[in-house]
Structures are given as C-alpha cells and as structure tokens.
C-alpha cells in the first residue's frame, strides 16, 4: 500500500502545482486523483469550495514525506530572499515602520522604476532628474526615443502613469511625475497649440463647429487652455472613454458682446 497526501487550493491546477513544489516531484511524475474540482461559487463570493487532490507518493515512508515537505519550504524561503534583493527599495518600506516609508526619496524610487521599464524597451537611455515645486521631471535621453514615445505619445503616457503609481504608493502626499523624452512634451505642446489656433481660425471663418478627434486628457487640456482666452470660440470635450473628441464651437453672440 502506498502513502497518500492530500492537497487543496483554489483549483485543481494550482493544487497540483502546490503538490509538486512541496514534494519536489516533477509534474509528469506526480500521481494524483482529483477528489473535488472546487468551485468559485457565485461571483466568487458565496459557496467557494477548494479543489482537493490526493497524491500517491512513490515511496511509502513518512520520513521521506517529512523531509521533502521541509525542503519545499526552504525553496520557498530562498525564492522570497531573491525577491527581496530585487526590489530592496520596496522591501525596506515594507519592513520598517510607517515613519520610514515617507523617508524613501521619491526621486530614487521613481528613477529606479523608470530605469527598469526603459531598459526593457530600449538600451543606452540615460535619465536626468529635475525637481520643480511639487513635481519631479525625469528627462530621458538616448536609446530608441520613437519606441519610448509611441503612437501619439501613448507609451510615454503609460510609463509616466505607472511610475507615478509606484512612487505614490505608500506615500501620504502626492508627487506629480512628468517624464520627457528628448523634449517631446514641449514639442507636442507647441504643435497642439498651433493646431488649436488654426482650428479656431477655421471655425471663426466658417461659423461651423469643428472637432479634433482621439485626444487624451493631457492633450485636451492643452487645447482648452490655448483657446480659453479666445472669446470668439468655446471648446468642449465630447465622447466616452479615455480618448475623447474635442469640439470647437463658434460663439454666436460674441460680436454683440464686443459692441
């Protein structure tokens, strides 16, 4: 008669994986019977059941079981240790008290996170940091800047968003993060302002509203601000989701007001 051990986890696959890890047996050699498949219940809230499997051990010796399960735990521990060394910054903030969390310099944290992301996308890019009142500006130079910026700057926006998330996690206040690649932000701002003024001229001469499509929040803001002092037109965002249209309307009574 062979020895049996039961494992349970969220589903059968995970239970098998857990069994393999704890017993140090490759998956192909693991002999198991499924006792129950488990269920996630209704919306994963009510009636969750764990999956159970029974693993048949090749050698029916309780001593072996004890040793191997210990080994499994050691492996897990060493895994955790390597993780700790990888994100030492974050681990420090986890280990130490609340007071120390704030002490982690957002510049270092942001730089580390940004460098990791950038290194994955391109090589030989360097970062310089500028600190302005309550935000931090990271300037990226070198590497393949076209890929870093992406279509309409969407990769840049994504990187900026994630770095901001990482920096502001475990912080009391909020720091703004701006990431610029070879002066892209400024270039984009200039070209959008030029576009805004041109469109406004067109609206004024035709008297009909005109739309600029597919704009993200940052781009729309630039156009709104560029045209807010122009009292011949008004601007409005239209549509749903993260990319909206921006419509420029002529103001009908503007001439009357001026007279």
């Amino acid at each position: 008669m062979s020895h049996c051990v039961e494992f349970e986890d969220k589903n059968v696959e995970m239970a098998v994986k857990k069994a393999c890890e704890e017993l140090n047996i490759p998956r192909e050699k693991l002999k198991h019977d499924v006792i129950s498949y488990g269920s996630t219940g209704i919306f994963g809230l009510v009636g969750t059941k764990k999956a159970r499997i029974r693993v048949t051990l090749p050698k029916p010796s309780p001593k072996v079981v004890f040793e191997t399960s210990n080994k499994g735990q050691q492996n897990e521990n060493s895994d955790e240790q390597t993780l700790e060394s990888v994100d030492s910054q974050i681990e420090i903030s986890h280990d130490e008290g609340e007071d120390h969390r704030v002490a982690v310099d957002p510049r270092d944290l942001g730089r580390e996170a940004l460098q990791k992301i950038i290194d994955l996308i391109t090589t030989d890019a360097t970062i310089s940091i500028e600190k302005r009142s309550n935000r931090i500006v990271f300037n990226v130079r070198g590497g393949n800047s076209a890929v870093l910026i992406g279509k309409h700057g969407q990769t840049l926006e994504a990187i900026q968003y994630l770095v901001e998330k990482i920096v502001n996690k475990n912080r009391k206040g909020r720091v703004g993060i701006h990431i610029d690649v070879e002066g892209y932000l400024e270039k984009r701002r200039m070209s959008l302002q030029r576009l805004a003024v041109n469109m406004a001229e067109k609206v004024k001469s035709t008297g009909k509203p005109a739309a600029i499509g597919q704009m993200n929040a940052h781009d729309r803001r630039i156009v709104h601000i560029a045209l807010q002092d122009d009292n011949m037109v008004r601007t409005q965002s239209k549509g749903e989701g993260f990319l909206k249209k921006l419509v420029i309307f002529p103001k009908k009574n503007s001439s009357r007001k001026q007279n």
């Binding site: 992301i117 994955l120 393949n144 890929v147 870093l148 992406g150 990769t155 994504a158 994630l162 993260f242």
Partner: peptide
C-alpha cells in the same frame, strides 16, 4: 479604474516586444 492600470502595462509590454 476602467482598466487604466492594465492598459498602461499592456502598452509598455507592446513597446518592449516591438524590438
């Protein structure tokens, strides 16, 4: 919120795998 985080991660992934 509205898939914003996962969208950012996916955007970075596609940029990284483009090379």
């Amino acid at each position: 919120k509205k898939g914003r985080n996962v969208r950012a991660i996916r955007t970075i992934l596609s940029a990284a795998s483009a090379k």
